[in-house]
Simulated assay, not measured.
Amino acid sequence: MKRLATIILIALSTITTSYAQNNVQSQNQFQMKLNAGIITEKIQETKQFYTENLGFGVTFENEFYLLMHTPGHQAQLSFLLPDHPSQQPLFQSKFQGEGAYLTIEVQDVDELYHQLKEKGVQIKIDIRDEPWGDRHFAIQDPNGVGIDLVKYTGPAN
């Protein structure tokens, strides 16, 4: 009887371990890293805007592509010249300056607001508190992309 119980425990342990490994492999198979991209002729202006105003760094750059990262390397954003012969037609049409936005969560939205105002960056939406818990303001990059700079504060009572 003890031998049967031991065999059952070993079998259950093997099945459980196999299931857990398969489950982890399945989850890892679908882990993703997002890099949003904008097709634009304004790569140099964009680089200057993001580095000088938001502290982004350059991860990679060549004559037709710019890959940037947020401070701390938590997210990336890329820019590509339109109609570049190295790219497939899907990635050749330039962004038309409407219908896109980025949300960037920051620790001190008030400080960033004051810094950007001092630099003369045009504020598109003044700093405000929303009932759903955002304290935020918005600016616009050289390509027309709206940038919502936000600190989540929690919903108002």
Score class of each variant (00 low, 15 high):
residue 66 L to E: 01
residue 59 T to G: 04
residue 26 S to G: 13
residue 102 L to P: 04
residue 61 E to W: 04
residue 69 H to T: 13
residue 48 Q to H: 08
residue 77 L to A: 11
residue 60 F to G: 02
residue 79 F to L: 13
residue 110 D to T: 10
residue 66 L to V: 06
residue 94 K to M: 10
residue 88 Q to W: 02
residue 96 Q to L: 07
residue 28 N to I: 07
residue 102 L to V: 09
residue 87 Q to K: 00
residue 34 L to D: 00
residue 102 L to H: 11
residue 107 Q to Y: 06
residue 97 G to P: 03
residue 75 A to F: 06
residue 106 V to G: 06
residue 87 Q to F: 05
residue 50 Y to W: 10
residue 54 L to G: 11
residue 36 A to V: 13
residue 103 T to M: 14
residue 104 I to E: 02
residue 102 L to Y: 10
residue 109 V to I: 11
residue 73 H to M: 09
residue 108 D to P: 01
residue 29 Q to G: 11
residue 26 S to W: 03
residue 78 S to C: 09
residue 85 P to F: 00
residue 59 T to D: 13
residue 84 H to N: 04
residue 65 Y to V: 00
residue 47 K to Y: 13
residue 89 P to F: 06
residue 102 L to I: 13
residue 45 E to T: 02
residue 99 G to Q: 09
residue 88 Q to R: 14
residue 96 Q to H: 02
residue 105 E to C: 00
residue 75 A to Y: 06
residue 104 I to Q: 12
residue 37 G to Y: 07
residue 47 K to Q: 15
residue 65 Y to G: 00
residue 105 E to M: 08
residue 43 I to K: 13
residue 77 L to C: 10
residue 27 Q to E: 15
residue 81 L to P: 01
residue 33 K to V: 15
residue 74 Q to E: 07
residue 99 G to T: 10
residue 42 K to N: 14
residue 70 T to D: 11
residue 113 Y to C: 10
residue 32 M to S: 13
residue 44 Q to K: 09
residue 52 E to S: 12
